Simulated assay, not measured.
Amino acid sequence: MLGRNRKASRERDVRAVWAVCSALLDYPTPELLAGLDDLERLVPGNSDLAALAAHLRAHPLRAVQEEYVATFDHTRKCALYLTYFAYGDTRRRGAALVRFKETYRAGGVEWDEATGELPDHLCAVLQFGATVDTALAAGLLAEHRAGVEMLRLALAGWRNDDGSTGSPWSGALVALCDTLPDLHGDEADAVRRLVEQGPPAEEVGLAGYGADPALTGTGGTAAGPSTGPALIAPATIPVRS
């Protein structure tokens, strides 16, 4: 019984961290800033997430929005789309994106195409794990662990305009990775290869896989500027039961 209680407590803690990471890694909005106190109460004592919340409080909304776009929409190594790290903008990415939609369906929900967003967005995966099915989300994160670690390393090494190192959003990736199993063997090798080589080179371009209705997305990607803020609402997952 004690072991079962510890497991349940651990899962609650993981869900809380994933929920807060999902919200804080989303495009900054007035609603997100207004809810920072509530988010921090979900993860008391987490210094990494508290530091990011403090940064968001300390700067004007427009400034953090511009900083967010410069970080996640204009930089390949800081993409929030997990399949991008493994497949780049190649035809093989299409099947990987379908895998995310199938996983959401296995959890009892359907991906909402009306969002115009791709289903591999890290915020969506974390919200799915926090609110729907932790185990299924953990499976997706495990399959794309090299990409998660690549993003963590890229944010940790981010050079700020004042010459300092480390993106404010780095704390969210540290907090997330702290909830994941340690890397060993082939997983660690995959991270090293990704850091050295980067995502695969483009084979067919966005038009090549965008023609598939199941894969169409209009949000920003690491391949170029966004046409607007991410369409995943803060602290929500774009799914419907």
Rank of each mutant, 00 (worst) to 15 (best):
A233H: 01
I237R: 03
Y84L: 05
Q127V: 07
T115E: 03
V195G: 12
K7H: 12
P238V: 11
G185V: 09
A124F: 09
N5V: 12
A19M: 03
G171H: 05
G163F: 02
D26Q: 13
A135Q: 14
D161P: 04
G210A: 09
A16D: 15
V125T: 13
L136A: 13
K77N: 08
A207W: 08
E196M: 11
T115H: 13
T179L: 08
A70Q: 14
T134C: 13
L24H: 03
L32G: 04
G224N: 02
L183T: 08
R6T: 07
A106C: 14
Y209I: 06
L206M: 08
G208E: 09
C21V: 15
A201K: 06
W158R: 02
S22D: 06
T134E: 15
E203F: 02
A211S: 04
G219F: 01
Y84N: 00
G3M: 07
L52G: 07
C123S: 13
P168I: 11
E11Q: 15
I232P: 00
R12W: 04
G108K: 13
H74G: 03
E40M: 14
L153Y: 10
G3P: 10
V98D: 09
D182W: 07
R62V: 04
L136R: 15
D38C: 06
A106L: 14
A63W: 04
V17A: 00
T216F: 14
L215W: 10
A130M: 08
A58I: 02
A63K: 12
R92E: 14
A137N: 12
L206N: 09
L215K: 04
C21H: 00
L36Y: 09
L42M: 15
P28W: 06
E187H: 13
D133A: 07
Y27H: 07
